[in-house]
């Protein structure tokens, strides 16, 4: 049994035939094993965020089923999602809209530790101050940002707060939607090194959405390439990077900007 099973999942927004109707995810099936590092790349608007929102039960498939650790998690009441909520953390694509603007950074980062669902699972750090200091340091933020509000930070600092928040409860599975795209190269390197260490030390399962194939190749062992809501290509990341099969993947690789200095 795989840790995650996505079984013929489709998500349509709006009613068929209306002008606002979009088939965001179109009959996608995939499996994620414990300890796997899966990258999801693809065109803007191809359904990547929609897919990971459904995998975290924040959105529901129009048809198809999603299982986590053997349990169906699609179309389930929140109170039946204990296993998923205590094991999986999601870093949203846009920290500006996912971080509560009225909470201080320190409270945002430690909030998952106060969740009832997480506390019952047992393995959550109990010393909140210590854990806060630890995760802030791991994303290279000084402890003094804990007293600030999200709008008092830079874009990259906000993104790091979102990553720190997800790491606080030591999740088994980290799902991150474009976690490093807003980061400067140095912080990006640091965050990717951190993720690599977590994978090595705790067998973290990682699902990372990124538009950057070089980032995915660096941290992920396997990759799916999405386009128009469908899986266009999948395989070991090194193989997809070196020997892409679909025309779109080849185009993706060819469009990676290179240094142009004369």
């Amino acid at each position: 049994m795989s840790l995650y099973e996505v079984d013929h999942v489709t998500r349509r927004y709006g009613r068929v035939g209306t002008s606002g109707s979009v088939l965001a995810v179109d009959d996608v099936s995939l499996a994620v094993e414990q300890g796997q590092r899966l990258g999801i790349v693809g065109e803007s608007g191809s359904g990547k965020s929609t897919l990971v929102r459904m995998m975290t039960a924040l959105d529901q498939p129009t048809s198809g089923v999603i299982r986590f650790d053997g349990d169906v998690v699609s179309h389930r009441a929140e109170r039946d999602l204990g296993g998923l909520r205590s094991s999986v953390q999601l870093v949203f694509q846009d920290p500006r809209s996912s971080l509560n603007p009225r909470m201080r950074v320190g409270d945002i980062v430690t909030e998952p530790l106060r969740s009832r669902l997480l506390r019952v699972s047992g393995h959550v750090p109990t010393d909140h101050r210590a854990r806060l200091a630890e995760v802030l340091e791991s994303v290279d933020l000084p402890l003094e940002v804990a007293d600030r509000f999200p709008h008092e930070l830079s874009g990259g600092q906000r993104q790091r707060v979102a990553i720190a928040r997800a790491l606080t409860p030591k999740p088994q599975v980290l799902i991150a939607d474009e976690p490093v795209s807003a980061l400067d190269v140095s912080v990006r390197a640091q965050v990717l090194n951190l993720v690599r260490d977590l994978v090595a030390a705790h067998g973290l399962t990682l699902i990372m959405v990124s538009h950057d194939l070089t980032v995915v190749r660096h941290v992920c062992d396997s990759v799916i390439v999405m386009r128009h809501g469908r899986i266009e290509e999948q395989g070991p990341s090194e193989q997809v990077y070196r020997d892409p099969q679909s025309a779109y993947t080849r185009e993706l690789l060819a469009s990676i900007p290179t240094f142009r200095v004369t």
Binding site: E43, S44, E178, I256
Partner: peptide
């Protein structure tokens, strides 16, 4: 332009 293409895949970025 403040990071105008960070959320874009490379083909759209181009």
């Amino acid at each position: 332009c403040d990071e105008p293409t960070t959320a874009l895949d490379v083909t759209v970025q181009a």
